[in-house]
Each structure stands twice: as C-alpha cells, then as structure tokens.
C-alpha cells in the first residue's frame, strides 16, 4: 500500500466513525483490508481503494471502515467488570428500581460476546429475583457485519473457549454442526440497534448501566469527547459506566467519577449538566 492510500484509509475512518488509525502501520491496515479485498473480488488492496476513491461507493467504503474498526472480543472479557456487575451493580440497581425496568447497554458490542455475557448473568439472577423485576438489554455497534453475527448467536470452537466457563456453555449453547449457537432464551433477551456513537445523535437514553469497553481508546480525541458526551446523556443520573482497562472519561471528567477500588467503573455525577 502506498503512503497516500494509508492516509486516505486513516482519514475516512476518522471522519466517519472517529476511529484512530495510524497511517504508518501499513502492515496493520493491509491485514485488515486483505479479507475485504478477497471477499469483494478485487485483485489487490490498491484496486479496492482506487475503486472506492474513484466511485465514492458507499457500501465498499463502509466495508473498509468496518474492517478497520473490528475489535477483538471474548465472553466475560477481563472477568472483573462482569463480577462487579453481577455481585454489586445489579443487586443495588434492582433494589433501587423496584418494578421499573432496569436498562443495560453494550455500546460498541461488536460480535455480541459482551452483551450475551451480561444476558447470561441476568438469566442466572432471574431465578433468585422477586417477580416483576424487568431487565432490558441492548447491544449496538456501527458494523452491520458484526451486528449480524451477534444477532445470529453463532460462535466457533475457539470463540466459545475464550472466557466462557464450561458450565455456561453447557447451559446456554447448543451444537450446530461445527458451530455453537446460543439458546433462544438468551438471544431473545437482547435488543439490537446499529449505531455510530460519534455521529448518531439519536441514541436512546435512560440507561442504568453502560458497558463501553475498549471503544474510546481507539478513537480520535474529538470523537472520544463526543462519545463521552453521548454516554453521559444516555446514562441515568444514578447510572454506572464501565470503561476498558486504561480508558478514562478524563476529557469529560465532570460527568463521571471513578468508583473507588473498582478500576474501569464510573458513576454518573447527578449534578452534571451537559451544555445545550
């Protein structure tokens, strides 16, 4: 790939979805675009990029962005946030909400492992909850391809062995040829929406918990700021935000405060008001 092609890829990713791509890392860009090139029957990555630059083809341009934005995902990634959600946040919010619906959003859910991990926790918790408790789970991502896979609930041999305890696999999955598919009762707990966190101003609000882990670390500073503002808007006044390792809402620090001894967990500052 030429330097100019790499810079063009970095620019469309930054402009359209706020994704930070280093144009110096041509090997990384090539590794992401090679599968798109093969899938779409272009002779080379250069041909793919030339085509999109010449025709402004939206579908192909989006395929490039989706490939660059794809993030590694696994069930119960890093474990601790899920244990905190299960043992502390969920019981506290259920108690606080009573019979009002409790809403949980995985923002940037990728191929679904995060929101389904939460669904499995909620499903386990239901057995011990009083009747009438409502918990709504939402997953959103900017990638149609990722969302399609997430909604299918199909995962391969390797995906179900990364982070998923074997008892959860037995309880919540079925074999389907050489794949594993989530049982319908878990799939049906989640509602889905394609959403570009940076540009889409129509994100629903009133969430009690938002997981947005390993998303803003890959964004440009401006996109990170807009995303954090969107999350602050979407989170209820006493809600909680989970960020990934090494991520913090420092550019919007007034909106959230870190929960002591819970790395990655932030509580919404009820007094914070976003500028109109």
């Amino acid at each position: 790939m030429t330097r100019e092609d790499c810079e063009w890829v970095a620019e469309i990713c930054a402009t359209r979805v706020g994704l930070r791509v280093d144009p110096e890392k041509s090997y990384f860009i090539e590794s992401r675009l090679a599968p798109v090139t093969r899938r779409e029957n272009f002779p080379s990555i250069e041909d793919l990029i030339t085509f999109v630059r010449r025709t402004n083809d939206d579908r192909m341009g989006w395929a490039i962005i989706e490939a660059m934005a794809a993030n590694e995902s696994s069930f119960f990634r890093d474990r601790t946030p899920f244990e905190c959600f299960k043992n502390e946040i969920l019981p506290a919010l259920i108690h606080a909400r009573g019979h009002s619906p409790l809403r949980v959003w995985s923002a940037g859910c990728g191929t679904g492992q995060e929101i389904y991990s939460l669904a499995m926790i909620v499903d386990d918790a239901f057995a011990m909850l009083p009747p009438g408790v409502q918990i709504q789970l939402f997953g959103s991502d900017l990638s149609d391809r990722a969302m399609e896979k997430a909604q299918s609930g199909y995962y391969n041999h390797f995906e179900v062995q990364r982070g998923l305890p074997i008892r959860q696999l037995v309880r919540n999955f079925q074999r389907s040829d050489d794949m594993w598919v989530l049982r319908a009762h878990i799939r049906e707990m989640v509602r889905w929406r394609r959403l570009n966190l940076v540009q889409d101003q129509t994100a629903p609000g009133g969430f009690d918990v938002i997981f947005c882990r390993n998303v803003i670390c890959n964004m440009t500073p401006g996109a990170r700021q807009r995303t954090l503002e969107g999350l602050a808007h979407a989170l209820s006044a006493d809600g909680f935000l989970f960020l990934g390792d090494g991520e913090s809402p420092q550019t919007l620090s007034g909106a959230f405060h870190a929960v002591a001894d819970r790395p990655g967990l932030y509580a919404r500052n009820p007094a914070f008001r976003l500028a109109a």
């Binding site: 041999h157 390797f158 062995q161 990364r162 982070g163 305890p165 074997i166």
Partner: peptide, 14 residues
C-alpha cells in the same frame, strides 16, 4: 473445566 481440541495457548491459559 473442559477444553475441546484443537486448542492454543490462550485457551489453555484462560
């Protein structure tokens, strides 16, 4: 726990 072959180092570690 239960590992299904083939495995890699990441799976065994996890």
């Amino acid at each position: 726990e239960y590992i299904m072959k083939p495995f890699d180092s990441d799976i065994i570690t996890r």
